[in-house]
Amino acid sequence: MIKTTNLSKVYRTEEVETTALNEVDLEIKEGEFVSVMGPSGCGKSTLLNVLGMIDSPSGGDYHFMGEEVGRLSERKRSNVRKHNLGFVFQSFNLIDELTVYENVELPMLYTKVPAAERKQRVEELLEGMNIMHRRNHFPQQLSGGQQQRVAVARAIVNRPKLILADEPTGNLDSANGDEVMKILSQLNSEGTTILMVTHSQYCAEFGNRIIRMLDGQVVTENLVKQYL
C-alpha cells in the first residue's frame, strides 16, 4: 500500500535548516497495523503528515497504492486523501462549531455522499461507538474519551483504506485509551490498514509491527511478539 524510497523532509527558515525526515525507506502492506515510536522530535508526526499527504516531501519517492503521490498538486492530493485516508489526532481536532453528528458527517460532504446514506452511516457509527445519545452535543460538552471516539468515527466514516493516527491516546486516561485502541484493532481486523504514532509501548503492541525512529531515520523495525 505504501512504499517510500529516500523520503526526506527539510524545514528551512532564514537561518536554520532542520531535517525532519532523512531518506526514509518504508513499506507498509495492506491490512497491516504499524506503530511508529521514537523520542520527541524524531520525525514521527512529520512522517505521518507526509504519508497522510497533508505535507509534501522535500525529496525521495512516495508511492501510495502503486501511484507516486509525493509530487501531486494540492487538489489531487486532496482527492486521494478524502477517498482513501482517515485521520485521528492526539488533540481530537473536532470542529467546535459542529455537533457530534455534524463532525462525523463532515468528510462525507466532501466526497458528496447522498444525504440519506450519510445519515445511515453516521447513525451506525455513533451507535457502534456508543455515543448516539450525544449526537447533538458540541465537542466541548464531551469527555476526552467521547471526543476521541467521535474523532475515530469521523476518520472511518468514509471507509478509508488507511487510518493515520497521531498519538490517539495521548490525551486520554488509560480506560479511554484502551477503548480507543480496541476500536482501532477491531478496524484493523476488519481489513483497514493502520499507521499509528505513539509514545506508549503498550499501545504500540496493539499493532503487528513497530518502527522505531531517531533523528528522522528509521532505525529498527520489529514484529510484535504475538506475530513472531
Binding site: 481536532n93 470542529i95 467546535d96 463532515l106
Partner: peptide, 16 residues
C-alpha cells in the same frame, strides 16, 4: 485555523 486544517485533512480544497 484548526477548523481550516481539519477541513483540509478531510478533503476540503482551498477553493471550498
Amino acid at each position: 485555523l484548526r477548523e481550516m486544517g481539519v477541513r483540509k485533512v478531510m478533503g476540503g480544497t482551498q477553493g471550498q
